[in-house]
Design a protein around this nucleic acid. Structure first.
Lengths: 205, 205
DNA sequence: GTCTATAGCCAGATAGAC
DNA sequence: GTCTATCTGGCTATAGAC
């Protein structure tokens, strides 16, 4: 029973820490606020995770491990590029809509501390473009796709999917839409983005 | 003479503050580090800008005023949508390549404090989509463009241009490219991105 | 395991001499 | 305007009782 209790408390802490770190970032977050949100006190936080840095890394690694393998799965399955784009757009957007702070959290902290990636790269399931690259080159040769570098296509796919979550306040202000309308735009993108990309790169037969 | 000297010192401070804030963010930045980078001491920093908050706002507003009106200019000139896309992609990318930290700085701090936008919206030159929207709808009706919502097109244009600067460490790691190769990818995008968008939305005659 | 109390440090801000 | 020295508060982290 004790074990279950501990695990509950640990995941309770991780959940609280995730929320605070995602709102405030590593530097802006306060251990006190995390403790409050977890319903415990500061000393106990340090009992479970010796330092703020260690707690942060636990949260970060968990977040990264949630996003990255999914990406990898899409990149390396056996479907065509067109199907990959549809799958990715549909699945990834659904996922991010449920966790809208995740992308900006991860990108932010990676920008501040790119060395994190070195640790991550060692892990299994770290995304890899090799197969995707070969496949794009092949479909270009076969006349299915217009000439495009796989890296550029990859950047475009990810950009179109993730950017709206990185810039939501700005886009809302520019486009003069309220929260509800913006939410609807995001949902529409689940299909819109795939169409947009495929219209651009596919050669019509 | 004194005035010139003061202005120099002020812009010297702003320049140093910009660098530190862009690297570390509001919370991570240290007044001491800004003072060091400006070649002065901490007390003098407080003499010119009473508080860290005020210094930060000065830096932020300057950065924002650099980016936003340019965007507005492209949106509201008299060229066709296709030309707008080419212009924007070419000019904006050139500009950002020179100031690669700007986008992530602005988006980050806006996410932490969206109220900034309320202040900004009052200013002249705050980007506005009205004209762009009308124009897109018109060109769709005329059969020049495929049906697309102006807001979605706007998001796509901005996403494709800015995202590579928000996620550079991540993309470098995934695509397994070094700094030089990534830099080249960015330069290529000055033309690639416009082609990508136009291929997607333009109806061939 | 969980708490209260506190040590110890560091950063923003100011006082005051020059 | 520019500096040195210092105050003050807040935050991470730990000591120690229960």
């Amino acid at each position: 029973m004790t074990e279950t209790k501990d695990e509950n408390k640990e995941s309770q802490i991780l959940e609280a820490a995730k929320n605070v770190f995602q709102r405030k970032g590593m530097d802006g977050a306060r251990m006190q606020e995390i403790a409050d949100e977890a319903g415990i006190n500061k000393a106990l936080l340090h009992y479970y995770y010796r330092s703020k840095q260690m707690l942060f890394e636990a949260v970060f690694i968990k977040a990264f491990s949630l996003l990255a393998p999914q990406l990898n799965k899409v990149l390396n399955d056996d479907s065509s590029i067109e199907e990959k784009i549809r799958n990715f757009t549909e699945n990834y957007l659904s996922f991010i809509i449920k966790h809208p702070y995740l992308p900006s959290f991860i990108l932010n902290e990676l920008n501040r501390n790119p060395d994190f990636l070195l640790k991550m790269k060692a892990n299994k399931g770290f995304p890899n473009l090799d197969k995707f690259k070969k496949q794009v080159n092949l479909e270009v040769e076969q006349g299915i796709l217009k000439p495009i570098k796989a890296e550029q296509l990859f950047i475009n796919i990810v950009a179109l999917n993730i950017f709206p979550f990185l810039a939501s306040p700005l886009i809302k202000a520019f486009a003069n839409v309220d929260d509800a309308a913006y939410q609807q735009l995001l949902v529409d993108r689940k299909t819109e983005v795939a169409i947009f990309i495929i219209d651009s790169i596919k050669i019509k037969s």
